[in-house]
Each structure stands twice: as C-alpha cells, then as structure tokens.
Amino acid sequence: MSLKDRITEDMKSAMRAKDAPRLSTIRLLLAACKQKEVDERIVLDDAMVVAIVDKLIKQRKDSIAQFAAAGRTDLVDKESAELPVLEAYLPARMSAEQVAAEVAKLVAELGASGPGDMGKVMGAAKAKLAGTADMGTVSAAVKQALAK
C-alpha cells in the first residue's frame, strides 16, 4: 500500500470516527498532493508525498511561532494539533548524532573545507538525506562540520 493510499484510508476512518480535526488535516494533505499532481501532471510516489508532508510540517511550525508571537493561542492550539497528524506520515527520523556522522562522511567524500563549500555539501546532503532527516538539523551539522 502506497503512502497516498494509506492517507486516503486514514481519511475514511477519520470520517467514520467523526474526528473533525484529524479529518480536516488529512484533507489538507490530500489537497496538497492533488495540487502537486495537477500542476506538474505527474503521479506522486512515496518520496514526493513525504516531501509534501515535510513542507506542511515546516509551514505549521512557522505558523506556530508567528501566532505565538502575536498572542493568538487559539491558532497556536489548532496548528499544534495538526502537527502530530502530519508527522505520523513521515518515516523514522535520524537522530542528530546520525545526521552528524552522515554529514562528516559527505564532507570527506566531497573534500569540502570552509564555509564556502556549504552549498555543495548541502546539495549532496539534501539528495541523500531528504525524507529521513530534518533539513534544519542537517544544515546545522554541515555548518558545524565546515567550521572545523
């Protein structure tokens, strides 16, 4: 069963359970997937769906920070409730230590040294670690590895 099929099945079960907050989040995710398919005239595979989920999670985290700064606790609660629903569709994430080890390998493979090579290392890291690691953590690890 593909990830998109699993999301559709979860939507049906949320409908049956009358779980409105979960249902609206899943519908939002499916709408984003459908939009991508229509815009690019493609059929999404699991990796593309994970990328969409990642994007939606990043949007939620940014929104939470903005709403908290504005004192809108009602919206912070709504966005915070959507996060665990979306995170359930992500594969297991790498720990910070695992990310640092992978980045160290990439830096050695590419022969990168200094902050000027950040783009080259990030490009390789994004290709290798997308979907399995938080890119903010990867970026921090790359900065730390290149600062040595």
Score class of each variant (00 low, 15 high):
64 I>S: 09
64 I>M: 14
64 I>H: 09
65 A>H: 08
65 A>M: 05
66 Q>Y: 06
66 Q>G: 06
66 Q>W: 00
66 Q>H: 11
66 Q>I: 08
66 Q>A: 13
66 Q>T: 14
66 Q>F: 02
67 F>N: 13
67 F>T: 07
67 F>S: 06
67 F>D: 09
68 A>K: 15
68 A>P: 05
69 A>E: 12
69 A>W: 02
69 A>G: 12
69 A>D: 11
70 A>G: 03
70 A>N: 13
71 G>F: 02
71 G>M: 06
71 G>T: 12
71 G>D: 07
72 R>G: 00
72 R>N: 14
73 T>D: 14
73 T>R: 06
73 T>H: 07
73 T>M: 12
73 T>Y: 04
74 D>A: 10
74 D>V: 07
74 D>C: 02
74 D>P: 00
75 L>C: 03
75 L>G: 03
75 L>Q: 15
75 L>K: 15
75 L>D: 03
76 V>C: 09
76 V>G: 11
76 V>F: 07
76 V>S: 12
77 D>V: 04
77 D>K: 15
77 D>G: 01
77 D>H: 07
78 K>A: 14
78 K>G: 00
78 K>D: 12
78 K>I: 14
79 E>P: 01
79 E>N: 15
79 E>Q: 10
79 E>G: 01
79 E>C: 07
79 E>R: 13
79 E>I: 07
79 E>A: 13
80 S>T: 15
81 A>D: 04
81 A>L: 07
81 A>V: 10
81 A>I: 04
81 A>F: 01
82 E>V: 05
82 E>K: 14
83 L>G: 03
83 L>E: 11
83 L>Q: 13
83 L>V: 15
84 P>E: 05
84 P>W: 08
85 V>I: 13
85 V>S: 09
85 V>D: 06
85 V>T: 10
85 V>L: 06
86 L>V: 08
86 L>G: 09
86 L>Q: 08
86 L>T: 10
87 E>M: 13
87 E>C: 02
88 A>R: 15
88 A>E: 11
89 Y>F: 14
89 Y>R: 02
90 L>C: 05
90 L>V: 01
90 L>E: 03
90 L>A: 02
91 P>E: 09
91 P>M: 02
92 A>C: 01
92 A>W: 00
92 A>T: 07
92 A>I: 04
93 R>N: 08
93 R>F: 05
93 R>E: 08
93 R>A: 14
94 M>L: 14
94 M>C: 01
95 S>T: 15
95 S>H: 08
95 S>V: 08
96 A>H: 12
96 A>F: 06
96 A>R: 14
96 A>W: 03
96 A>G: 03
96 A>M: 10
97 E>Q: 14
97 E>W: 03
97 E>D: 11
97 E>S: 06
98 Q>E: 15
98 Q>W: 12
98 Q>T: 08
98 Q>L: 05
98 Q>M: 07
99 V>L: 01
99 V>M: 02
100 A>I: 09
100 A>C: 11
100 A>F: 11
100 A>V: 10
